[in-house]
Design a protein around this nucleic acid. Sequence first.
DNA 1: TGGGTCATGTAACCTGTTACATGATTAG
DNA 2: CTAATCATGTAACAGGTTACATGACCCA
Lengths: 183, 183
Amino acid sequence: MSLKHGLLGLLSYGRMTGYELDKTFKDSLNFFWQAQTSQIYRELNAMEKLGWLTSEIVFQTDKPNKRQYSITDMGKAELYKWLDESSLDSEFQIRSAFLMKLFFSGERNVDENIIMLENYKKRCMEAMEALEGTDGNIEDYRSCASSNQQALYWGLTAAFGKSYFKMCLDWADSAIKLLEGSL
Amino acid sequence: MSLKHGLLGLLSYGRMTGYELDKTFKDSLNFFWQAQTSQIYRELNAMEKLGWLTSEIVFQTDKPNKRQYSITDMGKAELYKWLDESSLDSEFQIRSAFLMKLFFSGERNVDENIIMLENYKKRCMEAMEALEGTDGNIEDYRSCASSNQQALYWGLTAAFGKSYFKMCLDWADSAIKLLEGSL
DNA sequence: TGGGTCATGTAACCTGTTACATGATTAG
DNA sequence: CTAATCATGTAACAGGTTACATGACCCA
């Protein structure tokens, strides 16, 4: 149940609308968790029913009205409970459709598999660049005195991402060499 | 839709029962894809309805009867179609509840976070050992002449796993150092 | 006048998780 | 006698994906 907790976490920094949460989510948490806009609205609804959030409508004249969510004490308690829980196995597991495909690629000819790995490298490089693009955001955020601590942990997750994609690139290089050698 | 394709892939090596698929899955694909036993039985059912598999009951006297699944031509076509499809974004993405927790750990005190990271390291080491345990399986498999190709790709995924957990350990070490420095 | 941003959702469907149920045989 | 292995599932629920729907305002 991490999407709910991710949203709670963001709302613990301050009240936001679904639209703002969606954007913030995609700007910061997206590389390690993905959520559809529609899913975010659904979860906000569910969490309000659980009493973790309250909402009120903000009227605007130049733009559409919006619904602003605030975390409740119950919501904060739930967030801290989740943070303190010792993690489950499932929180450490990888799921990779790419590796699944590779696993069964013995049937295909080696050239195609090399192309697939080249494509994989390209994606990893793009992901790495996207992560480097958020470095600026983290720095801006850090300069806010109250957010110094948060920025530290944000930075740690970004560092993870960079090491991860670097590792993927190195692995793909050695995999390509191995396959080329098997020709 | 990777579980279906993973099962198709295993069945392309030969007919198997749900029980055998479950075990084979957990011995080989498990580090990059997890599936509950109940889910495997459900998917087998669904795939038979789709015409990708057929099944027949094998009667046994000393053990319970069992239902053996075979891949059909339609199933093979579906498997190859999936292998040839250029991969979607979703096949490259990470999802990590652990990183989500870390992201929001600025609220907690640093000691607790260091403990969390130590625990993370322990899990990574266990996962790495589990992967090294499958090396033997891969070798046994490779010696089967017809499986030489498959073993190569299985080996590549295992190599990914080892690099991954190694990277996680190194990252966690540097994260711990950073946090200790911030005390 | 066409595309981007702001803004919020519903419905249907697919996939994954958890809990439960059953029962025979075999090895220690 | 007790635990493991063999063997197959159902039901309910939670979470994720895809497609669709609406409409105003602003900038080029």
